[in-house]
């Protein structure tokens, strides 16, 4: 066996970080099973009451709504990112490629708060979208986007766009352009080529992108908090309210643990459901 002299040295920072993460998760896990003592920062004895409370319609509803928002966000992002990724991969012009890449990736470089504030300016009742639509005479009253699910989804799509674009572009760049040429020479028009060749072969990228976007959106906080303004409750904003407004740390911890478990469950489910599709693209 080959000895790797620097292995221990290189692995130790990662091990330390992992250890800290495991420690934090363990702390949250034990908080989730402790009783809430109103008026005290210290949790009480062991209990399952926190998880029982989760089954109340109010909280269960927030979970369902969160899963729904994540799903819609992931699908809308897919539809927006696909043509973008395709153009980045297949464009012959280097200038166009760089322009599209920068446009697609910029959201990553903006801080979450800055980005969300920009969306408030765009989505507000006298914001960019509404002023333009009114200026064009298309609407008489402003469309309510702020504090709505639609507004939150729009802003969340912007958050997940870069990662989705990168994943799709990676998948598309692995598809030999000769496949599309071959299909074309055999008499398939552009739509047929896309549906029978490009789309199935990019399925691994689509599955990876959608599941990643789903997980990202599930944990997003600033966007639903600021755009939703408390009227679009998601698991993350609920955790914040319980933890930092009511100081109910045990219940907030239970929510976090359940959210994490739910994310894993949904990802596993998605993987199982999509694996036949994913195999389509296997080379």
């Amino acid at each position: 066996m080959k000895t790797r002299p620097f292995l221990a040295l290189f692995v130790s920072p990662a091990a330390l970080a992992a250890l800290a993460l495991v420690g934090a998760l363990a702390a949250i896990l034990q908080y989730a099973f402790r009783a809430f003592v109103p008026g005290s920062m210290e949790p009480g004895g062991l209990t399952l009451a926190n998880f029982e409370a989760l089954l109340r319609p109010l909280y269960a509803g927030v979970f369902l709504q969160t899963v729904w928002i994540c799903l819609i966000t992931a699908l809308v992002t897919l539809v927006v990112a696909y043509p973008l990724a395709y153009a980045i991969v297949r464009s012959r012009s280097v200038t166009l490629k760089s322009f599209l890449l920068i446009t697609a990736l910029t959201p990553m470089f903006l801080g979450e708060v800055v980005r969300t504030y920009s969306w408030i300016i765009v989505l507000g009742n006298s914001g960019f979208i509404n002023s333009v639509l009114r200026g064009l005479g298309l609407i008489e009253r402003p469309i309510q986007l702020m504090f709505t699910t639609t507004g939150v989804v729009i802003a969340l799509v912007h958050v997940t766009l870069p990662i989705m674009t990168i994943m799709l572009a990676a998948a598309l760049s692995h598809i030999d352009a000769a496949y599309e040429k071959a299909a074309t020479s055999l008499g398939a028009g552009p739509v047929r080529v896309f549906l029978t060749v490009t789309l199935p072969l990019s399925m691994p990228g689509i599955v990876a992108g959608v599941t990643t976007a789903f997980a990202w959106t599930f944990s997003a906080f600033a966007t639903p908090q600021m755009i939703g303004g408390g009227r679009v409750p998601m698991v993350s904003t609920l955790i914040y309210q319980l933890g930092f407004a009511s100081f109910n740390f045990p219940f907030a911890a239970a929510l976090s643990v359940t959210g994490l478990a739910l994310t894993f469950a949904v990802l596993a489910l998605a993987k199982a459901a999509l694996s036949p599709l994913e195999r389509m693209g296997a080379h």
Binding site: K181, A182, S185, L186, G187, P200, A282
Partner: peptide, 28 residues
């Protein structure tokens, strides 16, 4: 190109990897 009725055999064949041999041949 899709209306030219020209058959092409590509350098690396460009067989559709997600389709069976039959589906490949029947594609056109």
């Amino acid at each position: 190109p899709y209306a030219r009725e020209i058959g092409v055999v590509f350098q690396n064949y460009a067989l559709f990897p997600h389709m069976s041999v039959e589906k490949n041949v029947g594609y056109g």
